[in-house]
Design a protein around this nucleic acid. Structure first.
Lengths: 124, 124
DNA sequence: CCGAATCCCACCGGATACTG
DNA sequence: CAGTATCCGGTGGGATTCGG
């Protein structure tokens, strides 16, 4: 029989929030989803060009994770040269709203944060 | 004079969203904010006990970042042994809502994500 | 009790080269 | 065009020790 923590400690790594934040908090995921929102369907190269500085490796890796999580659909066309298109799944689309909430918070409060930082820093 | 990208490429690292996601996407920030929501005032040791697995180093580092960003207030009491309390600032409180949106999304869709993963994996 | 300092390893992610 | 494979440096973060 196991003892149970009485209060708090709700988060122990098995917490779903942890898992999701690990996903969308990584370097590129949020940007890819941002590009694909509004039902956009984009090719690999289009996404790559749309996000400055991402490497093929990381874009491939990010898209694979998103596909595995059921957030993005990957469609390969049997042509030559190959064409591969990506789009958000219905599940992926439901993630756009909370992500937008974060983005809007960032845009609305980034100045306050920056100000707090300089104030904190020059207080030495 | 600089050339300007015509379309897309809104995100180049200077994007505020990137910056905020880097913050809240790290391993512990969201958990600390979660503990402090509802106007909670907690001591260092209480926060530490409330979050399973965090080290003093990371808790200190996380709290310092939050303080620097103006999201958390740090109050030191000149007692012995020392007592230090943390609480969310008004700015910090405004971050609770979007964070909650993420948490709720996670709780509502984590099963769908897990199912998509196993399906993807056993499709080998 | 709270935190700074140090050591150290895992792994994230960039650069490059190679395939179908 | 859309990947896979390999190498490698920077760093996030744990363990431990020391200080006020």
């Amino acid at each position: 029989m196991e003892t149970v923590e009485l209060h708090g400690n709700v988060y122990s790594g098995d917490c779903p929030t942890r898992q999701i934040l690990d996903r969308i908090g990584d370097k590129w995921t949020a940007l890819v989803i941002g590009l694909l929102e509004d039902g956009q369907t984009l090719r690999f190269s289009e996404i790559k060009r749309g996000i400055g500085g991402i490497s093929q490796k990381m874009l491939t890796q990010t898209l694979r994770s998103l596909e595995r999580d059921g957030l993005v659909t990957r469609t390969v066309y049997a042509e030559v040269p190959p064409r591969v298109e990506y789009t958000l799944t219905p599940l992926g689309n439901t993630l756009v709203a909370p992500l937008t909430a974060i983005r809007e918070w960032a845009e609305n409060h980034i100045e306050a944060v920056a100000e707090a930082q300089t104030q904190y820093d020059e207080a030495e």
